[in-house]
Computed example of a mutant assay.
Amino acid sequence: MPDLRARLDSAVPDLLAEHRVPGAAVGVALDGRICATGYGVTHVVHPIGVDENTLFQVGSISRTLLGAVIGRLMEQGVLELDPVARSSARTRASTGASPCATRSPHLASTPRT
């Protein structure tokens, strides 16, 4: 994977600068091999160098990722929404209601406090 690592090394720092991101840990699995490394720092005020083992706080993007995973599992027939969730999703789509208007225990959600 030296070629992949070189490609990451040439692309990731520019992407971080372009999007004003102080740092990122990047991992790629390809053909049974894993290339993982880090770039930049964890925080601009308290900078700690990022490596492949750096832990970051999970933000709102995790819901988007989870939704994409759920969608793929549904496409593959591995996961099916219960009738209440399916009906709720159709109702929200047809009425323009907020995605948080109805919840099901089978759907990923963030509890409101």
Rank of each mutant, 00 (worst) to 15 (best):
P2E: 09
D3P: 01
L4T: 05
R5Y: 06
R5W: 03
D9C: 04
A11H: 03
P13R: 03
D14S: 09
L15K: 08
L16S: 01
A17R: 08
E18T: 10
H19G: 03
R20C: 06
R20P: 02
V21D: 04
V21P: 01
P22K: 00
P22V: 02
P22H: 03
G23F: 04
A24T: 05
A25P: 00
G27E: 07
G27F: 01
G27Q: 13
V28T: 03
L30F: 09
D31R: 14
D31M: 08
G32C: 04
R33Y: 09
A36R: 13
T37I: 09
T37L: 15
T37M: 13
V41T: 06
T42K: 10
V45R: 15
V45D: 14
I48W: 13
G49S: 15
E52I: 11
E52Y: 02
E52N: 10
V58H: 11
G59K: 10
S60H: 00
I61R: 02
I61V: 15
R63T: 12
R63W: 05
T64M: 09
T64P: 00
G67L: 09
A68R: 15
V69Y: 07
V69M: 15
G71C: 12
R72F: 08
R72W: 10
L73Y: 04
L73H: 07
L73M: 12
M74R: 14
M74K: 13
E75M: 11
G77S: 04
V78C: 09
L79P: 08
E80P: 00
D82S: 04
P83L: 03
V84H: 03
V84R: 11
A85V: 02
S87G: 14
R90T: 11
R92G: 13
S98N: 14
P99E: 01
C100M: 12
A101Q: 15
T102L: 14
R103E: 03
P105C: 01
P105R: 00
L107A: 15
L107N: 14
A108Q: 07
A108L: 14
S109M: 07
S109K: 15
T110K: 15
T110V: 15
T113F: 14
T113D: 09
